[in-house]
Design a protein around this nucleic acid. Sequence first.
DNA 1: AGAGACTGACTGAACGTTCACTCAGTGGAG
DNA 2: CTCCACTGAGTGAACGTTCAGTCAGTCTCT
Lengths: 194, 194
Amino acid sequence: MPVVQKTKQTAILCAALELFAEKGFHRSPISELASLAKVGVGSIYRYFKDKDELIHAVSEMVEESLQDALTDSLDPTLQGQKRFIRLITRLIEYLHLHPLEFKFLEQYYSSPYGIDKKHAKLLRENDTDQSSLIFDFYLTNQGGVIKALPLSLYFAMTFGPISFLLRDSFSGFVVLDEKLIQQTAEACWDAVKA
Amino acid sequence: MPVVQKTKQTAILCAALELFAEKGFHRSPISELASLAKVGVGSIYRYFKDKDELIHAVSEMVEESLQDALTDSLDPTLQGQKRFIRLITRLIEYLHLHPLEFKFLEQYYSSPYGIDKKHAKLLRENDTDQSSLIFDFYLTNQGGVIKALPLSLYFAMTFGPISFLLRDSFSGFVVLDEKLIQQTAEACWDAVKA
DNA sequence: AGAGACTGACTGAACGTTCACTCAGTGGAG
DNA sequence: CTCCACTGAGTGAACGTTCAGTCAGTCTCT
């Protein structure tokens, strides 16, 4: 019954995303998760070894959607500043439209789960093709349009502000309209441009 | 016996900072905290109503130290770009030298504890004098040396990158040396300068 | 000064709650 | 009937919090 299985597994993943994003990992009891997914508690353990594995599975689902959304909305011929601004803008817009995904990722990457995953990723860095468009932009630096900085600093100057701004937006401290998104993308560009 | 009391309360606060920073709030049992502070479990509840109050108390202690350190190390006559770069540099250096404080604050401000506190702070904003030097710099913008941006974006462009970079540093993804600190401060400046 | 009464900071075993996880049982498909 | 996906009451561990009891130190009375 691959169809039914798929449906149930997906239901669990979606319920997990919702609960984790809203309540945090440790305030999301499996029992509550089960009833939200309309599934018995035991079924969760049919599809996922334990809660940790479920958390990692949610992160993979979320990252895939995000990467797809970015790829779909990007004109591949854009280069330089325009490409950068477009990437950042789309990233903010996507996360702003998907609060659950943002809150989940925030939590994931500031927890041991995400840190372990990042470690594992770095070890594979040489072998695998990189699927992140922003990562690519920084690595290639076509035409030397950006300063020569350590990769970590590029990431810090991009994801750092975005993360802070979205957190403020979802906490109700700021209204994230089109203008503010534009200002943010431009400030990020100013921070790294040559 | 105010002296003895003070010592015990401080011991609890320091042990709490250490445990919370290293294990997170919900993996720091009161029992472990008590033995680290060399104190009976019950004594913790003599000084703090519950675990939540203890967490807030730690945050106040940490923020006070940080603010003091920044104030002490700043030449008050410095203005404009130099003042900004110095502030950012000192902030990074302080947090880099104080991993426990950084990890605690990170966790605190991405949890309901810190968000509630921020809300409360915003409501008081008009009344109180602001004690944060960076806050002051942005608010006054003396001589129009920085772009006109919403306050939230200034903060995002400052604390966002710093937070990301320090996280990478403590996770072992990057070596935070003097040069990298300088590059970070300059990138932050480029992001907000007029 | 000395004895006895008193105080309250301090302790940790015990309690109730919450949680991740298990497994005996159920029901539907073949 | 057999098989197996599925269920949820049950289990034990871990946690925050409580409170009856201890005892060093202080005060009062003789």
